[in-house]
């Protein structure tokens, strides 16, 4: 296994790991701010998978230059730029709703929030 393919596969393993850890955190944590953190972790993992899917071996970044002959796919990177911004917006809203809910129930514990029980 060459260094490049090791990097390639370790990237997607990291990304999938982030998604799984984030999902596990969302499902099992009790503090609503930790759930928000786990959610952003999963979000980052999804973004990493998208960027990874546009990667092609032995190509440069999609910025045209006289010395550049071939480049990776710019489309997933543009998509991830959008995804990051939406992720920030959703995370900001998540935290605020969490603060509001914890003020109402007197604690950040989701088990005490009747509306959030599962």
């Amino acid at each position: 296994m060459t260094a490049q393919s090791l990097f390639y596969w370790s990237l997607v393993v990291t990304a999938a790991g982030l998604v799984l850890i984030g999902l596990w955190g969302v499902l099992t944590r009790k503090n609503i701010l930790r759930i928000a953190l786990a959610f952003t972790l999963a979000d980052t993992g999804v973004n990493l998978i998208l960027v990874w899917s546009g990667f092609l071996p032995n190509r440069s970044a999609p910025i045209v230059d006289a010395s550049v002959t071939s480049m990776v796919d710019p489309l997933p990177q543009a998509l991830v730029l959008t995804s990051i911004v939406i992720g920030v917006a959703v995370a900001a809203l998540f935290v605020v709703v969490g603060v509001l809910a914890s003020r109402k129930s007197g604690s950040a514990d989701v088990r005490r929030m009747k509306e959030l029980r599962w």
């Binding site: 939406i86 900001a92 605020v96 709703v97």
Partner: peptide, 16 residues
């Protein structure tokens, strides 16, 4: 989307 999210954040925080 970013605009509506930031508006919602400001709106909800006035309740707190």
């Amino acid at each position: 989307v970013l605009f509506s999210a930031s508006t919602a954040v400001v709106l909800i925080l006035t309740l707190i």
